[in-house]
Amino acid sequence: MSRGSRRWAGYLLRRVFTSLLVILGVVTITFVVSRLVPSDPASLYAGARARPEQVEQVRADLNLDAPVLSQYVGYLGDLARGDMGISFATKRPIAEDLRRFLPATLELALSATALAVLLGVPAGVMAASRHRRLSDTGIRLLAVTGVSMPVFWSALILQLVFAAELGWLPLAGRTEATTVFAQPTGMFVIDSLVAGDWGGFVDVSRHLVMPVVVMAAFPLGLTIRLVRGTMLEVLGSDYIEAATVARIPRRTVLWRLALKNALLPALTVLGLTFAYSISSAFLVEAVFGWPGLGKYLTDAIVRVDFPVITAAALAITVIYVLVNLALDLLQARLDPRVELA
């Protein structure tokens, strides 16, 4: 094993360890927050018509009368066994619900991430190459608009125009109700393709368009600003100037030399974009009636269903932490400038 790869392995281990530490912290924070909820979980669980004795029984059954610390330890133990508990409101196992709703949200968030990056990177490069010209200002304004629009407002406008007025796109939902796919992934775009169901794929895609566009607006603005900033910096560096002096064509300089250097740090954009997509999920899903994790979480908040609140928040956060970990590792692997000390 070379010295380099040993350092790499060490770095990897350390990074995984700190990620685990962070996840433990996240679990703790969600646990603490859930105990701040101003309603009595036992009476919630016992149901709307429970009598006081029943509520007390539930309190004992759920270990809710135990000291907070022992509840916390119990909670950690359950989680470690993969048991996320059951919903107080619906009495369904939460892990099962998460398996249902998570793919729907991932489908949205990944599509939005892809859209934001595919549009954002070229737009950022273009703005940088036309620095201080009209198109640069235009793209900048577009980017700022993207990060200044409330998603529920842009969603309303899109729905009014493309669904209510023009009737081009379905108003809400994931599919027509009759569309059912065998579930390799739970992401219908992929499932329909796997099943070779072209009609289903079209249906699913049409449903995806508006939520994805709305969701992508903010991360798109973000991506443009970041890529533009990095590109400007790279374009100002000595070796690009040298390349320009050496009469290498502008296009090659821009898209080959400069972008390559700018893209490495832009990996982070991917993580960020994903983060913003997934965190706006609960707004987007509410407006589009999208049966995903965000809606699951909002519903749980409305019903003060705290096992669900903590579990859903935890799931989203863990995914985010893992995505960040993966991107960091990837970047450390690819970018020689990252010190692995």
Binding site: V22, G25, P38, F282, I309, A313
Partner: peptide
């Protein structure tokens, strides 16, 4: 910094929603 990192680990908005829901 470990505490800070933990708070940073939440996707933006999510923690705010959690806390707002808990506080009312």
């Amino acid at each position: 910094m470990r505490i800070t990192d933990t708070f940073l680990a939440f996707p933006p908005l999510l923690l705010a929603v959690l806390v707002a829901a808990a506080l009312g």
